[in-house]
């Protein structure tokens, strides 16, 4: 029996150290890829032959000093607002899960108000806070400030973006906390680990797997939402572009400059997110997922790995 199989198999596909696996061919894949590449080529042709895109102007302003400075402010706003948002988000999420109903409701009310109003309105509101409270009085410290002096456009921007983000982050963090098996909290409790350490060392790290993907999206969203603060005349990247085109009338090229920078930063953030997810996946998967380059390599590989000889022998023995 086993000699027969060996001889019939042996002719076509057996090499000295085992079988060579030839993967299935996928003609559909290649056709779809071809059609899409042709469409992309058409669009690119139009983009690069239409003079009104003003590519030389784009190139000129792409590394302009005021644009670079604007980019720095955009990044600063994104980072600070997200940090405030995440800190608030964790605090609010823990409050939402508190056994104390007053604490729970306070957190719910916060989320209700900040999610219920557009962030642009909130920004304008903070910017005009001086109209509501002309002086800010920190009674306990005996300090008093002029609201107009404290609430600079930048401060209003950070306050508006950060507080609003806190509401969204709290929902994300809450979903993450709820995703952790209750047995984990129980095991930590049985070991005498207190609530704070259980949250910080046991629950949050596991919740991260659920928290990080949407937080990555939120960060990218925040990067673009910062463009709203151009209405407060904060010189971030869009406002800097607007200042230039108000002078030179190169509207489209400068909007392209701003867009390109947003895309560049988004790309960097996406890559960062990917590796962060890989980091927090440890322990949850037996093997880490492949990097993007490895995935592309798999897709176009024709010959799969060779099966070791032992597998082949097992197969024959089981016949």
């Amino acid at each position: 029996m086993s000699t027969l199989t060996t001889s019939t198999f042996g002719k076509s596909s057996r090499s000295s150290d085992g079988f060579t696996i030839v993967k299935a061919k996928h003609p559909g894949r290649w056709i779809a890829a071809g059609v899409l590449l042709a469409l992309v080529a058409l669009v690119l042709y139009s983009v690069f032959t239409n003079d009104r895109f003003g590519w030389p102007v784009v190139a000129y302003y792409f590394t302009d000093f005021s644009i670079a400075r604007g980019l720095l402010i955009t990044l600063e706003l994104t980072v600070i607002s997200m940090v405030i948002g995440m800190a608030l988000g964790v605090i609010l999420a823990v409050m939402r899960l508190s056994p104390n109903p007053v604490v729970r409701m306070a957190a719910a009310a916060y989320v209700y108000f900040f999610r219920g109003t557009p962030v642009l309105v909130q920004l304008l509101f903070w910017y005009n806070l001086a109209a509501l409270y002309p002086t800010i009085n920190l009674g306990i410290l005996g300090l008093q400030f002029d609201a107009n002096a404290v609430i600079t456009p930048m401060f209003a921007a950070i306050l508006g973006l950060g507080l609003n983000q806190g509401a969204y982050m709290s929902e994300i963090v809450r979903a993450g906390l709820l995703s952790v098996d209750s047995g984990q909290v129980e095991a930590a409790g049985a070991l005498g680990i207190n609530r704070f350490h259980t949250l910080r060392r046991i629950v949050l790290p596991q919740a991260m797997r659920v928290i990080i993907p949407p937080t990555g999206n939120e960060t990218i969203g925040m990067l673009k939402t910062t463009s709203l603060v151009s209405v407060l005349a904060v010189p971030e990247v869009l406002y800097s572009a607007q200042v230039i085109y108000a002078r030179t009338f190169d509207t489209i090229p400068l909007l392209i400059v701003a867009s390109l920078w947003y895309i560049v930063v988004t790309t960097v953030l996406s890559i960062g997110q990917y590796y962060l997810e890989r980091h927090f996946a440890r322990g949850s998967q037996r093997e880490l997922p492949p990097t993007p380059l490895q995935k592309i390599a798999y897709l176009f590989r024709v010959h799969d790995r060779r099966l070791p000889v032992s597998t082949k022998t097992d197969q024959e023995n089981s016949r």
Binding site: D181, G183, Q184, A187, A188, A190, P205, Q206
Partner: peptide, 12 residues
């Protein structure tokens, strides 16, 4: 000390 049916080890 307590040992659970489903181990409840910390997976991370």
């Amino acid at each position: 000390g307590m040992v659970f049916q489903h181990f409840n080890l910390f997976p991370h």
